[in-house]
Design a protein around this nucleic acid. Structure first.
Length: 376
DNA sequence: GATTCGTGGAT
DNA sequence: TATCCAAGAAT
């Protein structure tokens, strides 16, 4: 079965230099799952959370990596995954950690609700499931932070369940393979259905990871390397020559620029910090005091939101602005600095933190930019 | 169904 | 430079 998949397809293509849409080369529909797995066995990526071929996956590592990989690149996740596994080697260990410690470790990775749900999920698995992840898609789906994709991914990869998770990679591969004209997200059910036909009778997890690797390395968003694809000219979009235009989706609108002010207060070797609200943007993370962020922010109004500090009346405005781009709006912050006298009290809800230990704080990258700009 | 949620790299 | 977008979920 394995021998026919790739080795068998090549000579047939050679004998038919004239390729027509009516006689596509490449594996037949029924042969695709095997061809995909054969490709995977040769070209699978080596990733920190992926055990060697044939070695069963650790559900905890699979879950942790899947949460981190939501809307996040493999490269960005790598070091975070290693850090988490080293500090919390099991779901029970993670469940015993404080949310604050988890947020500190997650700082910089973005989408901080994932970190809150990660912690809540670890607690739930520890307390309600005895430290063992549910081994069904339905059971997994009930956990915080685990949606349709992640539940299917864990079920297939960690427990061998016959289900096909559909992520952005697989949406792209499948929409090209079948030239799905319908736009996302309306096309999701159809794509899910088509993706499931690529599931082999065994090795469900490998089938899914194969499609993801294919999407990440061959069937890329721009300039796909179609010549190296195991599906070959079985791909309708490739035959049409417009693979790059799939998947269809409506262009997304960019949000309006918002502006605000940030206030960096030093007291000797210390810095004034506070925590953000538990939910919402950068929820639960640490920040320096700052104003509202508004589309039509008035500079004077923003500056007036500086924290009230006894003995502090003069603020220096740093030249330039700190810019940051969130998913749905760009942000410009003006930075004001001041030096508070020794002994100055932190206002209610705020605290002093050593500059030398800022690396250990739950500071999102925006705040790290602000502090770097201020202390520059 | 549409919004809200970070960040950095590639093109 | 501007745009896209990466193993999506929650609301």
């Amino acid at each position: 079965m394995r021998a026919m998949s790739l080795a068998g397809a090549a000579p047939r293509r050679k004998q038919s230099p004239v390729i027509t849409a009516s006689e596509p080369t490449g594996p037949d529909r029924g042969e695709r799952p095997a061809a995909l797995l054969a490709w995977y066995d040769r070209h699978r990526r080596i990733l920190p959370w992926r055990p060697p071929a044939g070695v069963p996956a650790d559900p905890y590592a699979v879950w942790l990596s899947e949460i981190m990989l939501q809307q996040t690149t493999v490269r960005a996740v790598g070091p975070y995954f290693e850090k988490f596994m080293a500090r919390w080697p099991s779901v029970k260990a993670l469940g015993a950690a404080s949310l604050d410690d988890v947020l500190r470790m997650w700082a910089g990775l973005g989408y901080y609700s994932r970190a809150r749900n990660l912690h809540a999920c670890a607690v739930a698995v520890t307390r309600n499931h005895g430290g063992a992840f549910p081994d069904t898609e339905q059971g997994l789906r009930a956990l915080p932070g685990v949606g349709p994709y992640t539940a299917a991914a864990i079920a297939a990869i960690a427990f061998g369940r016959q289900t096909m998770p559909v992520d952005g990679n697989i949406e792209r591969v499948v929409s090209r393979l079948h030239a799905v004209e319908e736009e996302l997200p309306k096309a999701k059910p159809r794509i899910q259905e088509l993706a499931a036909t690529l599931l082999g009778p065994e090795r469900a997890g490998d089938s899914a990871q194969a499609l993801m690797d294919l999407g990440a390395t061959i069937c890329t968003p721009k300039k796909p390397a179609c010549a190296l694809c195991p599906f070959n000219d079985g791909c309708v979009a490739r035959l049409r020559g417009d693979a790059e235009t799939f998947p269809r989706k409506a262009p997304k609108k960019t949000g309006a620029l918002r502006r605000g002010a940030a206030f960096v207060v030093t007291r000797g070797d210390q810095l004034l910090l506070r925590s953000r609200a538990a939910k919402g943007l950068l929820g639960g993370m640490t920040e320096v005091p700052n104003s509202d962020w508004l589309a039509d922010q008035d500079d004077a109004v923003a500056r007036a939101q500086a924290p009230a500090l006894k003995g502090v009346t003069r603020w220096q405005r740093k030249a330039g602005v700190v810019t940051h781009v969130f998913t749905h709006f760009p942000l410009e912050l003006v930075v004001y600095t001041t030096q508070a006298p020794a002994g100055t009290r932190a206002p209610a809800g705020m605290r002093w933190a050593e500059v030398a230990t800022l690396a250990d704080e739950a500071l999102p990258n925006l705040m790290r930019k602000v502090i770097a700009h201020a202390l520059d």
